[in-house]
């Protein structure tokens, strides 16, 4: 086997993860190749060095910082919960629409035109209601003496709780 191929097998060889044939090939190669044999010894040394790094202790300062995290998060979460309560959603939607309308009105350069338009629409609506009321009165007058009979007939319709008698 060539040295490049053997290099790839050195680490699994160290961990005894090769099959019998590969293991034998590496073993034979290491006996005859000085470079690969030296590299293998450095791989072993590398692994020993890495394995020998002991765990560091956590400082008191870091522990204090870590213990303080849940408290901070809880306060933050509570404020969010309050804002996103389902019961507040219609109110938030209404406030949003109101803010949009007020912003549109107050920031619009043609505010005078909007005022005039609103005033005209209000006036038209008022006169329409007045006309409708006048027509209703005329209708009631036209019914005259038949008004009471019609009312009794309407009350007797089963739909409104009366009987057919």
């Amino acid at each position: 086997m060539r040295c490049e191929l053997i290099e790839e097998l050195l680490s699994p060889y160290l961990e005894d993860e090769l099959d019998q044939e590969e293991k034998r090939a590496v073993k034979e190669h290491l006996k005859t190749c000085k470079n690969c044999s030296l590299l293998f010894s450095y791989i072993k040394e590398t692994r020993e060095s890495l394995t020998g790094f002991p765990e560091m202790e956590v400082s008191e300062n870091l522990l204090d910082r870590l213990y303080s995290i849940p408290g901070k998060k809880k306060r933050f979460k509570l404020s969010l919960d309050f804002l996103f309560q389902p019961s507040l959603q219609p109110l938030l939607a209404a406030v949003t629409i109101l803010v949009m309308v007020v912003s549109f009105y107050s920031l619009n350069p043609d505010r005078n035109r909007i005022n005039k338009s609103i005033s005209r629409q209000a006036h038209l609506s008022y006169s329409k209601v007045g006309k409708l009321y006048a027509r209703a009165e005329t209708f009631v007058d036209a019914l005259g003496e038949h008004k009471d009979n019609i009312l009794v007939s309407v009350k007797n319709i089963p739909l409104f709780g009366g009987n057919e008698d």
Binding site: E8, L10, S11, P12, E17, L39, Y42, T46, R47
Partner: peptide, 20 residues
Amino acid sequence: VKSRVNRGRLQLAKILKEEM
């Protein structure tokens, strides 16, 4: 994972070899 461990060890071993 095994391939990356192998490459990492080889790379470190070569650094160690050059240093020595």
